[in-house]
Design a binder for these strands. Structure first.
Lengths: 259, 259
DNA sequence: GCATTTCATCTTGCATGCAAGTTGGAATGC
DNA sequence: GCATTCCAACTTGCATGCAAGATGAAATGC
Protein backbone atom coordinates (compact mmCIF):
# COMPACT_ATOMS: atom_id res chain seq x y z
CA UNK A 1 0.00 0.00 0.00
CA UNK A 2 2.06 2.91 1.26
CA UNK A 3 5.28 0.98 1.01
CA UNK A 4 8.35 2.83 -0.10
CA UNK A 5 10.56 0.32 -1.77
CA UNK A 6 13.38 2.39 -3.16
CA UNK A 7 14.31 3.00 -6.74
CA UNK A 8 16.35 -0.16 -7.19
CA UNK A 9 13.56 -2.60 -6.48
CA UNK A 10 13.61 -5.29 -9.09
CA UNK A 11 11.25 -8.11 -9.85
CA UNK A 12 8.38 -6.16 -8.42
CA UNK A 13 5.56 -7.93 -10.17
CA UNK A 14 6.61 -11.40 -9.13
CA UNK A 15 4.29 -13.29 -6.88
CA UNK A 16 1.61 -11.35 -5.16
CA UNK A 17 3.01 -12.33 -1.79
CA UNK A 18 6.36 -11.76 -0.24
CA UNK A 19 7.36 -8.24 -1.16
CA UNK A 20 9.07 -7.67 2.15
CA UNK A 21 10.63 -11.10 2.00
CA UNK A 22 12.02 -10.29 -1.41
CA UNK A 23 13.53 -7.13 -0.04
CA UNK A 24 15.10 -9.00 2.83
CA UNK A 25 16.37 -11.68 0.51
CA UNK A 26 18.07 -9.11 -1.67
CA UNK A 27 20.12 -7.86 1.22
CA UNK A 28 18.21 -4.70 1.99
CA UNK A 29 16.25 -4.30 5.20
CA UNK A 30 18.60 -6.44 7.22
CA UNK A 31 18.59 -4.64 10.53
CA UNK A 32 21.80 -4.65 12.48
CA UNK A 33 24.29 -5.69 9.85
CA UNK A 34 24.05 -4.20 6.39
CA UNK A 35 26.94 -6.40 5.18
CA UNK A 36 27.92 -6.37 1.58
CA UNK A 37 25.33 -6.27 -1.14
CA UNK A 38 24.88 -9.82 -2.25
CA UNK A 39 22.64 -11.26 -4.87
CA UNK A 40 19.41 -12.76 -3.63
CA UNK A 41 20.22 -16.02 -1.91
CA UNK A 42 16.71 -17.12 -1.23
CA UNK A 43 14.35 -16.68 1.65
CA UNK A 44 15.86 -19.43 3.79
CA UNK A 45 19.22 -17.70 3.83
CA UNK A 46 17.55 -14.36 4.47
CA UNK A 47 15.61 -15.70 7.42
CA UNK A 48 18.72 -17.39 8.76
CA UNK A 49 20.79 -14.24 8.63
CA UNK A 50 18.06 -12.09 10.07
CA UNK A 51 17.42 -14.40 13.00
CA UNK A 52 21.09 -15.01 13.67
CA UNK A 53 21.78 -11.31 13.75
CA UNK A 54 18.76 -10.68 15.92
CA UNK A 55 19.95 -13.24 18.43
CA UNK A 56 23.58 -12.09 18.39
CA UNK A 57 22.55 -8.47 18.89
CA UNK A 58 20.32 -9.52 21.74
CA UNK A 59 17.31 -8.20 19.91
CA UNK A 60 15.89 -11.65 20.50
CA UNK A 61 17.18 -12.33 24.01
CA UNK A 62 17.59 -15.72 25.57
CA UNK A 63 14.29 -17.04 26.76
CA UNK A 64 12.39 -15.37 23.94
CA UNK A 65 9.78 -17.69 22.56
CA UNK A 66 7.76 -17.40 19.40
CA UNK A 67 5.97 -19.44 16.80
CA UNK A 68 7.22 -19.87 13.26
CA UNK A 69 4.00 -18.17 12.25
CA UNK A 70 4.79 -14.86 13.88
CA UNK A 71 8.38 -14.74 12.68
CA UNK A 72 7.28 -15.60 9.18
CA UNK A 73 4.67 -12.84 9.25
CA UNK A 74 7.21 -10.37 10.57
CA UNK A 75 9.59 -11.25 7.75
CA UNK A 76 6.85 -11.26 5.15
CA UNK A 77 7.34 -14.84 4.09
CA UNK A 78 5.66 -18.17 4.71
CA UNK A 79 6.52 -20.63 7.45
CA UNK A 80 8.56 -22.90 5.21
CA UNK A 81 11.78 -20.90 4.92
CA UNK A 82 11.57 -19.90 8.57
CA UNK A 83 11.21 -23.56 9.46
CA UNK A 84 14.34 -24.50 7.55
CA UNK A 85 16.30 -21.60 8.97
CA UNK A 86 15.27 -22.66 12.46
CA UNK A 87 16.54 -26.17 11.83
CA UNK A 88 19.93 -24.69 10.97
CA UNK A 89 19.91 -22.43 13.99
CA UNK A 90 19.06 -25.36 16.20
CA UNK A 91 21.95 -27.39 14.85
CA UNK A 92 24.25 -24.51 15.65
CA UNK A 93 22.89 -24.20 19.16
CA UNK A 94 21.19 -20.82 18.90
CA UNK A 95 17.62 -21.96 19.41
CA UNK A 96 15.76 -24.98 20.58
CA UNK A 97 12.69 -26.23 18.78
CA UNK A 98 10.19 -27.42 21.36
CA UNK A 99 8.26 -30.05 19.42
CA UNK A 100 4.83 -28.50 19.64
CA UNK A 101 5.40 -25.49 21.81
CA UNK A 102 7.35 -23.08 19.70
CA UNK A 103 10.89 -21.86 19.25
CA UNK A 104 13.00 -20.90 22.22
CA UNK A 105 16.11 -18.74 22.04
CA UNK A 106 18.65 -20.63 24.08
CA UNK A 107 20.78 -19.15 26.79
CA UNK A 108 24.50 -19.74 26.68
CA UNK A 109 25.44 -21.58 29.82
CA UNK A 110 28.95 -21.41 31.26
CA UNK A 111 29.43 -24.97 30.08
CA UNK A 112 28.52 -23.91 26.54
CA UNK A 113 31.05 -21.11 26.62
CA UNK A 114 33.79 -23.39 27.86
CA UNK A 115 32.99 -25.82 25.07
CA UNK A 116 33.11 -23.02 22.55
CA UNK A 117 36.44 -21.76 23.80
CA UNK A 118 37.93 -25.24 23.65
CA UNK A 119 36.81 -25.58 20.05
CA UNK A 120 38.29 -22.21 19.21
CA UNK A 121 41.55 -23.15 20.92
CA UNK A 122 41.77 -26.22 18.73
CA UNK A 123 40.75 -24.63 15.44
CA UNK A 124 42.77 -21.45 15.75
CA UNK A 125 45.80 -23.45 16.81
CA UNK A 126 45.44 -25.53 13.69
CA UNK A 127 44.97 -22.42 11.58
CA UNK A 128 48.16 -20.89 12.97
CA UNK A 129 50.07 -24.09 12.23
CA UNK A 130 48.80 -24.15 8.68
CA UNK A 131 49.68 -20.52 8.13
CA UNK A 132 53.19 -21.05 9.46
CA UNK A 133 53.65 -24.02 7.15
CA UNK A 134 52.75 -22.02 4.08
CA UNK A 135 55.46 -20.85 1.77
CA UNK A 136 54.72 -17.33 0.60
CA UNK A 137 55.06 -15.43 3.84
CA UNK A 138 56.33 -12.26 2.30
CA UNK A 139 53.39 -11.85 -0.02
CA UNK A 140 50.77 -13.13 2.36
CA UNK A 141 47.92 -10.67 2.63
CA UNK A 142 46.81 -12.57 5.71
CA UNK A 143 49.96 -11.59 7.58
CA UNK A 144 49.35 -7.99 6.59
CA UNK A 145 45.84 -8.14 7.99
CA UNK A 146 46.98 -9.88 11.15
CA UNK A 147 49.61 -7.24 11.74
CA UNK A 148 47.21 -4.40 10.97
CA UNK A 149 44.56 -5.64 13.35
CA UNK A 150 47.12 -6.21 16.07
CA UNK A 151 48.41 -2.67 15.64
CA UNK A 152 44.84 -1.42 15.75
CA UNK A 153 44.35 -3.30 19.00
CA UNK A 154 47.33 -1.69 20.62
CA UNK A 155 46.17 1.71 19.46
CA UNK A 156 42.63 1.18 20.69
CA UNK A 157 43.97 0.01 24.03
CA UNK A 158 46.09 3.14 24.33
CA UNK A 159 42.98 5.22 23.64
CA UNK A 160 40.95 3.21 26.14
CA UNK A 161 38.42 2.44 23.41
CA UNK A 162 37.21 -1.01 24.36
CA UNK A 163 34.75 -1.30 21.50
CA UNK A 164 37.43 -0.55 18.95
CA UNK A 165 39.68 -3.02 20.74
CA UNK A 166 37.03 -5.72 20.48
CA UNK A 167 36.47 -5.00 16.80
CA UNK A 168 40.19 -5.25 16.09
CA UNK A 169 40.44 -8.43 18.12
CA UNK A 170 37.64 -10.01 16.10
CA UNK A 171 39.36 -8.89 12.91
CA UNK A 172 42.53 -10.69 14.01
CA UNK A 173 40.78 -13.94 14.83
CA UNK A 174 38.67 -13.83 11.70
CA UNK A 175 41.75 -13.23 9.57
CA UNK A 176 43.57 -16.07 11.28
CA UNK A 177 41.01 -18.73 10.37
CA UNK A 178 40.09 -17.13 7.04
CA UNK A 179 43.67 -17.09 5.86
CA UNK A 180 44.68 -20.59 6.80
CA UNK A 181 43.33 -21.98 3.53
CA UNK A 182 41.10 -24.58 5.18
CA UNK A 183 37.48 -23.73 4.44
CA UNK A 184 36.14 -26.23 6.94
CA UNK A 185 38.15 -24.74 9.76
CA UNK A 186 36.97 -21.30 8.74
CA UNK A 187 33.29 -22.26 8.67
CA UNK A 188 33.39 -24.19 11.91
CA UNK A 189 35.24 -21.41 13.70
CA UNK A 190 32.82 -18.82 12.34
CA UNK A 191 29.89 -20.81 13.65
CA UNK A 192 31.13 -21.20 17.20
CA UNK A 193 32.71 -17.77 17.29
CA UNK A 194 29.35 -16.26 16.47
CA UNK A 195 27.92 -17.91 19.52
CA UNK A 196 30.65 -16.54 21.73
CA UNK A 197 30.26 -12.96 20.52
CA UNK A 198 27.08 -12.55 22.53
CA UNK A 199 28.88 -13.40 25.73
CA UNK A 200 32.06 -11.54 24.97
CA UNK A 201 30.22 -8.26 24.54
CA UNK A 202 28.69 -8.63 27.95
CA UNK A 203 31.86 -9.72 29.66
CA UNK A 204 34.06 -7.20 27.90
CA UNK A 205 33.64 -4.59 30.59
CA UNK A 206 33.84 -7.04 33.44
CA UNK A 207 37.29 -8.43 32.92
CA UNK A 208 40.65 -6.81 33.46
CA UNK A 209 42.08 -4.67 30.72
CA UNK A 210 43.50 -6.92 28.01
CA UNK A 211 46.90 -5.31 28.13
CA UNK A 212 48.92 -8.25 26.86
CA UNK A 213 46.58 -9.49 24.15
CA UNK A 214 48.42 -7.48 21.53
CA UNK A 215 51.70 -9.01 22.66
CA UNK A 216 50.23 -12.50 22.41
CA UNK A 217 48.94 -11.73 18.94
CA UNK A 218 52.37 -10.49 18.01
CA UNK A 219 53.90 -13.73 19.24
CA UNK A 220 51.53 -15.66 16.97
CA UNK A 221 52.44 -13.46 14.02
CA UNK A 222 56.16 -13.82 14.67
CA UNK A 223 55.94 -17.58 14.92
CA UNK A 224 54.00 -17.72 11.65
CA UNK A 225 56.58 -15.47 9.99
CA UNK A 226 59.43 -17.66 11.14
CA UNK A 227 57.67 -20.72 9.73
CA UNK A 228 57.67 -22.55 13.04
CA UNK A 229 54.35 -24.37 12.87
CA UNK A 230 54.53 -25.95 16.29
CA UNK A 231 55.35 -22.65 17.96
CA UNK A 232 52.61 -20.83 16.05
CA UNK A 233 50.02 -23.41 17.01
CA UNK A 234 51.06 -23.38 20.63
CA UNK A 235 51.04 -19.58 20.73
CA UNK A 236 47.51 -19.45 19.33
CA UNK A 237 46.34 -22.12 21.76
CA UNK A 238 48.00 -20.37 24.68
CA UNK A 239 46.32 -17.12 23.71
CA UNK A 240 42.86 -18.65 23.71
CA UNK A 241 43.60 -20.60 26.87
CA UNK A 242 44.53 -17.35 28.52
CA UNK A 243 41.25 -15.75 27.45
CA UNK A 244 39.37 -18.81 28.60
CA UNK A 245 41.05 -18.65 31.97
CA UNK A 246 40.02 -15.05 32.40
CA UNK A 247 36.45 -15.87 31.50
CA UNK A 248 35.88 -18.64 34.01
CA UNK A 249 35.67 -16.58 37.21
CA UNK A 250 33.44 -14.03 35.51
CA UNK A 251 31.04 -16.70 34.38
CA UNK A 252 30.41 -17.76 37.92
CA UNK A 253 29.23 -14.34 39.00
CA UNK A 254 26.94 -12.98 36.34
CA UNK A 255 23.36 -13.85 35.73
CA UNK A 256 23.37 -16.32 32.91
CA UNK A 257 19.80 -15.70 31.95
CA UNK A 258 21.00 -12.54 30.27
CA UNK A 259 23.32 -14.32 27.92
CA UNK B 1 -0.62 -53.93 -1.09
CA UNK B 2 1.58 -56.91 -0.50
CA UNK B 3 3.70 -55.09 2.04
CA UNK B 4 4.93 -57.04 4.99
CA UNK B 5 5.31 -54.55 7.78
CA UNK B 6 6.31 -56.68 10.72
CA UNK B 7 4.43 -57.26 13.93
CA UNK B 8 5.63 -54.17 15.70
CA UNK B 9 4.25 -51.66 13.24
CA UNK B 10 2.51 -48.93 15.13
CA UNK B 11 0.37 -46.03 14.04
CA UNK B 12 -0.67 -47.94 10.95
CA UNK B 13 -3.84 -46.05 10.23
CA UNK B 14 -2.27 -42.64 10.33
CA UNK B 15 -2.27 -40.68 7.13
CA UNK B 16 -2.97 -42.57 3.96
CA UNK B 17 0.47 -41.72 2.63
CA UNK B 18 3.91 -42.47 3.87
CA UNK B 19 3.78 -46.04 5.13
CA UNK B 20 7.29 -46.74 4.01
CA UNK B 21 8.43 -43.39 5.29
CA UNK B 22 6.98 -44.21 8.65
CA UNK B 23 8.86 -47.45 8.72
CA UNK B 24 12.08 -45.71 7.82
CA UNK B 25 11.45 -43.05 10.41
CA UNK B 26 11.04 -45.65 13.09
CA UNK B 27 14.48 -47.02 12.44
CA UNK B 28 13.52 -50.10 10.48
CA UNK B 29 14.37 -50.46 6.83
CA UNK B 30 17.56 -48.47 7.10
CA UNK B 31 19.81 -50.32 4.72
CA UNK B 32 23.46 -50.47 5.60
CA UNK B 33 23.43 -49.51 9.26
CA UNK B 34 20.79 -50.96 11.52
CA UNK B 35 22.02 -48.85 14.46
CA UNK B 36 20.20 -48.88 17.69
CA UNK B 37 16.42 -48.84 17.75
CA UNK B 38 15.49 -45.27 18.31
CA UNK B 39 12.09 -43.69 18.64
CA UNK B 40 10.72 -42.06 15.53
CA UNK B 41 12.63 -38.85 14.95
CA UNK B 42 10.66 -37.60 12.01
CA UNK B 43 11.00 -37.98 8.30
CA UNK B 44 13.70 -35.36 7.88
CA UNK B 45 16.03 -37.24 10.18
CA UNK B 46 15.15 -40.51 8.49
CA UNK B 47 15.91 -39.13 5.05
CA UNK B 48 19.14 -37.61 6.32
CA UNK B 49 20.36 -40.86 7.80
CA UNK B 50 19.34 -42.90 4.82
CA UNK B 51 21.05 -40.62 2.34
CA UNK B 52 24.16 -40.18 4.46
CA UNK B 53 24.53 -43.93 4.80
CA UNK B 54 23.88 -44.43 1.12
CA UNK B 55 26.62 -41.98 0.23
CA UNK B 56 29.10 -43.32 2.79
CA UNK B 57 28.57 -46.88 1.63
CA UNK B 58 29.03 -45.78 -1.96
CA UNK B 59 25.55 -46.93 -2.81
CA UNK B 60 25.13 -43.42 -4.14
CA UNK B 61 28.56 -42.86 -5.69
CA UNK B 62 30.12 -39.51 -6.43
CA UNK B 63 28.67 -38.07 -9.58
CA UNK B 64 25.27 -39.59 -8.97
CA UNK B 65 22.56 -37.13 -9.80
CA UNK B 66 18.88 -37.28 -8.97
CA UNK B 67 15.86 -35.13 -8.33
CA UNK B 68 14.28 -34.69 -4.94
CA UNK B 69 11.21 -36.21 -6.52
CA UNK B 70 12.76 -39.58 -7.18
CA UNK B 71 14.44 -39.85 -3.81
CA UNK B 72 11.24 -38.87 -2.08
CA UNK B 73 9.32 -41.49 -4.02
CA UNK B 74 11.92 -44.11 -3.22
CA UNK B 75 11.66 -43.28 0.48
CA UNK B 76 7.89 -43.08 0.37
CA UNK B 77 7.67 -39.52 1.56
CA UNK B 78 7.09 -36.15 0.00
CA UNK B 79 9.71 -33.78 -1.29
CA UNK B 80 9.72 -31.56 1.79
CA UNK B 81 11.70 -33.71 4.22
CA UNK B 82 14.07 -34.76 1.45
CA UNK B 83 14.62 -31.12 0.65
CA UNK B 84 15.53 -30.29 4.24
CA UNK B 85 17.78 -33.31 4.54
CA UNK B 86 19.57 -32.26 1.37
CA UNK B 87 20.19 -28.81 2.78
CA UNK B 88 21.91 -30.43 5.75
CA UNK B 89 23.92 -32.74 3.54
CA UNK B 90 25.01 -29.83 1.43
CA UNK B 91 26.20 -27.90 4.48
CA UNK B 92 28.24 -30.90 5.46
CA UNK B 93 29.75 -31.21 2.02
CA UNK B 94 28.21 -34.50 0.92
CA UNK B 95 26.09 -33.20 -1.93
CA UNK B 96 25.72 -30.11 -4.01
CA UNK B 97 22.34 -28.69 -4.87
CA UNK B 98 22.41 -27.41 -8.42
CA UNK B 99 19.79 -24.69 -8.32
CA UNK B 100 17.40 -26.07 -10.90
CA UNK B 101 19.24 -29.09 -12.16
CA UNK B 102 19.06 -31.59 -9.36
CA UNK B 103 21.19 -32.96 -6.57
CA UNK B 104 24.75 -34.08 -7.20
CA UNK B 105 26.72 -36.38 -4.92
CA UNK B 106 30.05 -34.67 -4.52
CA UNK B 107 33.41 -36.31 -4.95
CA UNK B 108 35.98 -35.93 -2.23
CA UNK B 109 38.99 -34.23 -3.73
CA UNK B 110 42.46 -34.62 -2.26
CA UNK B 111 42.16 -31.07 -0.99
CA UNK B 112 38.96 -32.02 0.85
CA UNK B 113 40.67 -34.93 2.51
CA UNK B 114 43.59 -32.83 3.63
CA UNK B 115 41.18 -30.30 5.08
CA UNK B 116 39.34 -33.06 6.91
CA UNK B 117 42.51 -34.48 8.35
CA UNK B 118 43.63 -31.10 9.58
CA UNK B 119 40.30 -30.62 11.33
CA UNK B 120 40.58 -34.05 12.91
CA UNK B 121 44.13 -33.30 14.03
CA UNK B 122 42.87 -30.19 15.80
CA UNK B 123 39.75 -31.67 17.35
CA UNK B 124 41.24 -34.95 18.51
CA UNK B 125 44.21 -33.14 19.95
CA UNK B 126 41.84 -30.97 21.94
CA UNK B 127 39.86 -34.02 23.03
CA UNK B 128 43.01 -35.72 24.28
CA UNK B 129 43.98 -32.60 26.23
CA UNK B 130 40.57 -32.42 27.83
CA UNK B 131 40.62 -36.06 28.78
CA UNK B 132 44.06 -35.74 30.34
CA UNK B 133 42.88 -32.75 32.35
CA UNK B 134 39.96 -34.64 33.81
CA UNK B 135 40.14 -35.89 37.36
CA UNK B 136 38.67 -39.38 37.55
CA UNK B 137 41.10 -41.31 35.47
CA UNK B 138 40.75 -44.52 37.39
CA UNK B 139 37.01 -44.73 36.92
CA UNK B 140 36.93 -43.35 33.42
CA UNK B 141 35.01 -45.70 31.18
CA UNK B 142 36.51 -43.81 28.27
CA UNK B 143 39.98 -44.99 29.16
CA UNK B 144 38.69 -48.53 29.36
CA UNK B 145 37.23 -48.24 25.88
CA UNK B 146 40.37 -46.62 24.51
CA UNK B 147 42.50 -49.40 25.89
CA UNK B 148 40.14 -52.11 24.70
CA UNK B 149 40.01 -50.78 21.14
CA UNK B 150 43.78 -50.39 21.07
CA UNK B 151 44.22 -53.97 22.22
CA UNK B 152 41.75 -55.06 19.58
CA UNK B 153 43.79 -53.22 16.98
CA UNK B 154 46.97 -55.01 17.94
CA UNK B 155 45.16 -58.32 17.85
CA UNK B 156 43.58 -57.62 14.47
CA UNK B 157 46.95 -56.59 13.09
CA UNK B 158 48.51 -59.82 14.35
CA UNK B 159 45.75 -61.73 12.56
CA UNK B 160 46.18 -59.68 9.43
CA UNK B 161 42.51 -58.75 9.53
CA UNK B 162 42.49 -55.28 8.07
CA UNK B 163 38.74 -54.83 8.35
CA UNK B 164 38.78 -55.64 12.04
CA UNK B 165 41.74 -53.31 12.41
CA UNK B 166 39.83 -50.50 10.77
CA UNK B 167 36.79 -51.11 12.95
CA UNK B 168 38.89 -51.02 16.11
CA UNK B 169 40.67 -47.90 14.91
CA UNK B 170 37.35 -46.16 14.37
CA UNK B 171 36.24 -47.28 17.82
CA UNK B 172 39.31 -45.64 19.33
CA UNK B 173 38.84 -42.35 17.58
CA UNK B 174 35.11 -42.30 18.28
CA UNK B 175 35.72 -42.97 21.97
CA UNK B 176 38.36 -40.27 22.12
CA UNK B 177 36.04 -37.48 20.99
CA UNK B 178 32.97 -38.95 22.65
CA UNK B 179 34.63 -39.16 26.03
CA UNK B 180 36.16 -35.72 26.14
CA UNK B 181 32.98 -34.21 27.52
CA UNK B 182 32.70 -31.54 24.85
CA UNK B 183 29.59 -32.18 22.79
CA UNK B 184 30.53 -29.68 20.12
CA UNK B 185 33.88 -31.32 19.52
CA UNK B 186 32.17 -34.67 19.32
CA UNK B 187 29.57 -33.54 16.79
CA UNK B 188 32.05 -31.66 14.63
CA UNK B 189 34.48 -34.58 14.61
CA UNK B 190 31.69 -37.00 13.78
CA UNK B 191 30.64 -34.88 10.83
CA UNK B 192 34.05 -34.63 9.23
CA UNK B 193 35.08 -38.15 10.19
CA UNK B 194 32.03 -39.46 8.36
CA UNK B 195 33.26 -37.81 5.22
CA UNK B 196 36.68 -39.36 5.56
CA UNK B 197 35.40 -42.90 6.05
CA UNK B 198 34.57 -43.20 2.38
CA UNK B 199 38.14 -42.50 1.44
CA UNK B 200 39.75 -44.50 4.19
CA UNK B 201 38.03 -47.66 3.11
CA UNK B 202 39.40 -47.27 -0.36
CA UNK B 203 42.89 -46.38 0.73
CA UNK B 204 43.07 -48.97 3.48
CA UNK B 205 44.57 -51.62 1.26
CA UNK B 206 46.84 -49.24 -0.58
CA UNK B 207 48.97 -48.00 2.26
CA UNK B 208 51.65 -49.79 4.24
CA UNK B 209 50.61 -51.96 7.14
CA UNK B 210 49.79 -49.72 10.09
CA UNK B 211 52.19 -51.49 12.39
CA UNK B 212 52.84 -48.64 14.77
CA UNK B 213 49.32 -47.27 15.05
CA UNK B 214 48.64 -49.29 18.17
CA UNK B 215 51.82 -47.95 19.75
CA UNK B 216 50.79 -44.40 18.93
CA UNK B 217 47.38 -45.02 20.44
CA UNK B 218 49.05 -46.39 23.52
CA UNK B 219 51.17 -43.25 23.80
CA UNK B 220 47.97 -41.17 23.75
CA UNK B 221 46.42 -43.34 26.45
CA UNK B 222 49.51 -43.20 28.64
CA UNK B 223 49.70 -39.42 28.38
CA UNK B 224 46.03 -39.12 29.31
CA UNK B 225 46.53 -41.45 32.26
CA UNK B 226 49.47 -39.44 33.51
CA UNK B 227 47.38 -36.27 33.33
CA UNK B 228 49.82 -34.52 31.00
CA UNK B 229 47.46 -32.55 28.82
CA UNK B 230 50.10 -31.03 26.57
CA UNK B 231 51.70 -34.41 25.91
CA UNK B 232 48.34 -36.05 25.27
CA UNK B 233 47.31 -33.36 22.80
CA UNK B 234 50.61 -33.52 21.00
CA UNK B 235 50.50 -37.31 20.83
CA UNK B 236 47.02 -37.24 19.30
CA UNK B 237 48.03 -34.57 16.83
CA UNK B 238 51.20 -36.44 15.91
CA UNK B 239 49.17 -39.60 15.34
CA UNK B 240 46.80 -37.90 12.91
CA UNK B 241 49.65 -36.05 11.25
CA UNK B 242 51.33 -39.36 10.68
CA UNK B 243 48.20 -40.79 9.08
CA UNK B 244 47.82 -37.67 6.99
CA UNK B 245 51.38 -37.96 5.81
CA UNK B 246 50.81 -41.53 4.69
CA UNK B 247 47.70 -40.50 2.81
CA UNK B 248 49.22 -37.77 0.68
CA UNK B 249 51.23 -39.89 -1.76
CA UNK B 250 48.31 -42.28 -2.17
CA UNK B 251 45.97 -39.48 -3.04
CA UNK B 252 48.08 -38.47 -5.98
CA UNK B 253 47.83 -41.86 -7.62
CA UNK B 254 44.28 -43.06 -7.40
CA UNK B 255 41.37 -41.98 -9.51
CA UNK B 256 39.50 -39.45 -7.47
CA UNK B 257 36.26 -39.88 -9.34
CA UNK B 258 35.72 -43.04 -7.37
CA UNK B 259 35.75 -41.32 -4.01
C1' DG C 1 -13.98 -23.25 46.95
C1' DC C 2 -11.18 -26.94 44.84
C1' DA C 3 -9.99 -30.77 41.92
C1' DT C 4 -10.93 -33.05 37.58
C1' DT C 5 -12.14 -33.46 33.02
C1' DT C 6 -12.87 -31.97 28.51
C1' DC C 7 -12.40 -29.29 24.53
C1' DA C 8 -11.04 -25.41 21.65
C1' DT C 9 -6.90 -23.47 20.14
C1' DC C 10 -2.31 -23.22 18.88
C1' DT C 11 1.83 -25.52 17.70
C1' DT C 12 4.93 -28.04 14.52
C1' DG C 13 5.57 -31.76 10.70
C1' DC C 14 4.65 -32.85 6.42
C1' DA C 15 1.95 -33.16 1.82
C1' DT C 16 0.57 -30.75 -1.97
C1' DG C 17 0.10 -26.94 -5.20
C1' DC C 18 2.04 -23.33 -7.89
C1' DA C 19 5.43 -20.29 -10.06
C1' DA C 20 9.99 -19.15 -12.07
C1' DG C 21 13.85 -20.78 -14.50
C1' DT C 22 16.66 -23.77 -17.15
C1' DT C 23 17.47 -27.24 -20.49
C1' DG C 24 17.16 -30.44 -24.16
C1' DG C 25 15.06 -31.56 -28.19
C1' DA C 26 11.95 -30.91 -31.89
C1' DA C 27 10.47 -28.02 -35.52
C1' DT C 28 11.64 -24.63 -38.84
C1' DG C 29 14.33 -21.74 -41.95
C1' DC C 30 18.12 -21.93 -45.03
C1' DG D 1 22.21 -31.54 -43.94
C1' DC D 2 22.97 -27.79 -40.54
C1' DA D 3 22.10 -23.90 -37.59
C1' DT D 4 18.61 -21.46 -35.10
C1' DT D 5 14.62 -20.78 -32.54
C1' DC D 6 11.07 -21.96 -29.61
C1' DC D 7 8.57 -24.71 -26.49
C1' DA D 8 7.43 -28.34 -23.36
C1' DA D 9 9.04 -30.87 -19.62
C1' DC D 10 11.52 -31.06 -15.54
C1' DT D 11 13.82 -28.82 -11.76
C1' DT D 12 13.93 -26.41 -7.20
C1' DG D 13 11.91 -22.66 -4.04
C1' DC D 14 8.27 -21.41 -1.62
C1' DA D 15 3.13 -20.95 -0.18
C1' DT D 16 -0.64 -23.18 1.50
C1' DG D 17 -3.46 -26.89 3.39
C1' DC D 18 -4.16 -30.49 6.66
C1' DA D 19 -3.52 -33.61 10.53
C1' DA D 20 -1.58 -35.06 15.06
C1' DG D 21 -0.46 -33.62 19.48
C1' DA D 22 0.00 -30.55 23.46
C1' DT D 23 -1.74 -26.99 26.33
C1' DG D 24 -4.43 -24.09 28.97
C1' DA D 25 -8.78 -22.57 30.32
C1' DA D 26 -13.52 -23.26 31.02
C1' DA D 27 -16.98 -26.24 32.68
C1' DT D 28 -18.43 -29.70 35.78
C1' DG D 29 -18.55 -32.74 39.87
C1' DC D 30 -17.84 -32.79 44.78
Amino acid sequence: MSERKGATAKRQAATQTGKVAQAVAEGRMLPGSPEREQASEGRVEAAYRYLRNAILSNELPAGFQAAENEIAAQLGMSRTPVHEAMARLQEEGFVQILPRKGILVRALTPADLLEIYDVLIALEGAAAELLAAEADHALSSTLVELQASTDAMAEALADGDLDAWRAADERFHDALVAGCGNGRIQRMAATVAGQSHRARRLTLHLRPMPTNSAAEHQAIIDAIRSGDAAAAGEAARAHRRHARGQLVPILKRINFRQL
